[in-house]
Design a protein around this nucleic acid. Sequence first.
DNA 1: CAGGTGACATGAG
DNA 2: ACTCATGCCACCT
Length: 115
Amino acid sequence: MIMDVLLRRKLKEMGMTDFQISVLDATSNIPAGQVRTYKEIAIEIGHPNACRAVGTALRKNPFPVTIPCHRVIKSSGEPGKYSGKSGTRKIKLLQMEGVKISNGIVNQKRSSPAE
DNA sequence: CAGGTGACATGAG
DNA sequence: ACTCATGCCACCT
């Protein structure tokens, strides 16, 4: 995992709280070619209904390269918003990562016709 | 301290 | 299936 105690402390110095850091940590733990929903992240950090707070944390994303925020999507499979714009950019990045995308929507474990 | 905002989720119409 | 309204948590003014 990329998140070290030193980095966490640094993030705190930058104004990030433990909650925010936990979100960034969980996000950095997302394997390539995989996507995770805000809800999942919220649950991972121990706040199942803090989906909004998760988004707020990623929004303050201090290290866009260290934290693959583009791998975090909505529960509906839609990219949601990214950098204050449409998630088009995120979708393309995910595609490049190897994530299966359908009609601009991430192939979550829904009723996949064939997998 | 109180009010408003936001990269969301869920339920009801 | 789509849109509107409410709830949630954390952060900022």
